[in-house]
């Protein structure tokens, strides 16, 4: 594991104006993430973790402070440059998968590459297929979302986040809509990707999910209260120790 800084934030604040009131969602936080880290960001609702995620995802800009992704200062960028950063540097995984309806898995995964004019159609298809193989869906390439289980849909979304080879994958409650077993499967996949060197920021409010990461940052009222490395548990082992479910078939 190298010590290259993928992400660095300094004294980040974000204030919203709600009518005459000012809401301080982030009150000045600083941390950095090195390449290959698997960070969980935890906090209760209202702790500022969604605001932080929006900023990390280049969807929002800080009120003050600076955010560097891959050495690029985000607050100085315009809308167009932010789109470019999202397209080239980041991969998103959402709680509700956000797949397009009536669109095959391979086309879903191709989507980020369609917004990159440097990538030709043939390369786009190959990379999409490779990403689907990485998440173990090589047999489901042409399935529509309604033909896939929740876990499979989330894996398509993970493949979509991987396909542009981002410097960081941002996951927003990525296991929030899944049952325990499927959550563990997805976490096991994230751990595999992390083991291959992917940097992952995982926003969650479930402590047992955070245990599968390598570092945990806790937010409360817009401030970091703890930032500690954790004894990482293996999701694959946790999965194996779950009581067998007769109704469930492994894919």
């Amino acid at each position: 594991m190298t010590n290259k800084e993928v992400l660095k934030i300094e004294q980040l604040t974000r204030t919203f104006e709600m009518g005459s009131e000012k809401v301080h969602a982030l009150r000045g936080i600083s941390f950095s993430v090195n390449e290959g880290e698997f960070v969980s960001i935890m906090g209760t609702s209202g702790s500022g973790k969604s605001t932080l995620l929006n900023i990390l995802g280049c969807l929002d800009k800080p009120t003050s402070g600076e955010y560097f992704i891959d050495g690029i200062a985000v607050s100085k960028q315009n809308d167009q440059a932010l789109s470019l950063l999202r397209n080239r540097k980041l991969g998103f995984v959402f709680q509700s998968y956000n797949l397009l309806p009536r669109t095959s898995a391979v086309e879903q995964v191709e989507l980020p590459l369609l917004y990159n004019p440097d990538i030709k159609s043939r390369e786009r298809k190959e990379r999409a297929k490779f990403a689907l193989e990485q998440v173990g869906l090589q047999d489901r390439m042409n399935h529509f979302p309604n033909q896939l289980s929740g876990g499979q849909q989330q894996r398509v979304a993970i493949a979509r986040a991987l396909v542009n080879d981002p410097v960081m994958i941002l996951a927003d409650e990525a296991t929030g809509n899944l049952d325990t077993r499927t959550s563990y499967e997805v976490m096991s996949l994230f751990q595999q990707l992390n083991a291959q060197g992917k940097t992952i920021c995982f926003v969650t409010h479930e402590p047992d999910i955070a245990n599968f990461t390598t570092r945990s940052i806790r937010l409360k009222d817009g401030l970091i209260i703890t930032d500690t490395p954790i004894m990482t548990q293996s999701a694959a082992l946790a999965l194996a120790s779950l009581p067998k479910n007769q109704d469930y078939e492994m894919v």
Binding site: G57, L59, D79, Q80, S83, L84, R86, N87, R88, F92, F94, N98, L100, L111, P112, Y115, N116, R160, N164
Partner: peptide, 15 residues
């Protein structure tokens, strides 16, 4: 939601 997703994966406004 689809528009939001497209924007989040890098679609610019004019795209």
């Amino acid at each position: 939601k689809e528009i939001g997703l497209r924007m989040s994966i890098g679609a610019q406004k004019q795209f």
